[in-house]
């Protein structure tokens, strides 16, 4: 009987909100220049409790309850970054990022370029986004395309607690500004997260650059990110019962998009469905469909299908289940591409 064992990795079962909380904590312990700023992130711990307990442990200088002004939050974060800090801003809800839109698109995204690399602005902007929680107006939107359209800004979105834990640390370590979109409907989903003391950042920037195959399949590729990955996985399970094998990709990053991983998958399946909650019109799926049609033209058995929100403002919560892409809508698109 051997007594030598490989040490069990330090795993904890965490909800996504808690995983991000722990990721923020690790980043703050590692680098004294990391600071958090946002509305109600101190004593309250944020409206989703993502920053719970951090002000108590790191103090009001590093976990800052800001005045109620998003342009102020991002604008001062830029100044702090120029001064050598690594600010992590919280925007309370997707629909409230727009007062900061000017700072993000005209300043944050462009400083590095304008200074020909002399100035880095490693600012992270965390935003709970997406629908499905029965909220009032402006609390359920998916504005990622507006930001992905802006060069100089990375746009990423984790889909599970493990990625959330790693990716938030990678985003903070990244010298580029990162819009970090947190699928609020998944905040309470739990999963095992490897939280061993090993430096998560040593793993590089993988989560910020690459997509991942989260379920292998051979008939149709379903590419999703953030809140839609779980929907795609459920669709894959349902499709299996009908004899269709879906390969599910978690894109993780919307800018840049890992076209290589998508193309690899499409080479195998010949069919692609892209799913996101944001409106289909000018959404991330449009860019993916265009590129993949171009790059994989001879491998495609059917036109790329897109499943997403409609060209209408996010509806009242009593109708959001009709608006959001669900299992049935994904399967409908799968049937469409298989019919070719």
């Amino acid at each position: 009987m051997s007594t030598s064992t490989t040490p069990a990795p330090d795993t904890q079962r965490l909800a996504m909100a808690k995983a991000i909380n722990l990721g923020l904590r690790r980043a703050m312990e590692r680098d004294p220049k990391v600071l958090l700023m946002g509305e109600d992130i101190g004593a309250l711990g944020g409206v989703f409790r993502v920053t719970d307990g951090l002000q108590k442990d790191f103090g009001g200088d590093r976990v800052v309850d800001t005045p109620l002004a998003e342009s102020g939050i991002v604008g001062t974060a830029i100044g702090l970054a120029v001064a050598g800090y690594r600010p992590v801003c919280e925007i309370q809800f997707d629909g409230f990022i727009f007062p900061a839109y000017d700072q993000i698109t005209t300043q944050l995204a462009k400083l590095h370029y304008r200074s020909r690399g002399a100035v880095q602005v490693p600012v992270v902007i965390r935003v709970p986004y997406g629908g499905g929680i029965g909220a009032v107006e402006h609390h359920s939107e998916s504005p990622e395309a507006l930001f992905a359209h802006t060069a100089g800004l990375r746009v990423v979105s984790p889909a599970n607690p493990a990625d959330a834990f790693t990716m938030i640390q990678q985003a903070i370590a990244c010298p580029d500004p990162v819009l970090f979109l947190e699928p609020k409907a998944r905040y309470w989903d739990k999963a095992d997260v490897e939280v061993s003391a090993a430096d998560q950042v040593a793993g590089g920037q993988a989560g910020l650059n690459t997509a991942r195959v989260v379920r292998q399949g051979s008939d149709v590729t379903v590419a999703a990110y953030g809140p839609s990955v779980a929907t795609a996985l459920r669709a894959a399970t349902a499709a299996e019962a009908e004899g269709h094998s879906l390969e599910v990709l978690d894109l993780r990053t919307i800018s840049p998009i890992d076209f290589g991983t998508i193309a690899d998958s499409v080479h195998r399946t010949g069919r692609l469905v892209v799913v996101h909650e944001a409106p289909v019109f000018f959404g991330a799926g449009a860019e993916i469909a265009a590129r993949i049609s171009q790059e994989c033209f001879y491998h495609l058995e059917a036109p790329v299908a897109r499943v997403g929100g409609f060209h209408a403002p996010y509806p009242v919560s009593k109708l959001e289940h009709e608006y959001l892409p669900d299992l049935d809508r994904v399967l409908h698109a799968v049937d469409d591409v298989l019919a070719h």
């Binding site: 409609f310 060209h311 209408a312 009242v316 009593k318 109708l319 009709e322």
Partner: peptide
């Protein structure tokens, strides 16, 4: 509960081809 078609109403004051198609 409003009918689901309400989602597509009043997006624009004028006729819009994309909204109609969707």
């Amino acid at each position: 509960v409003p009918p689901a078609s309400r989602m597509f109403e009043n997006v624009y004051a004028t006729e819009n081809a994309l909204v109609s198609t969707e």
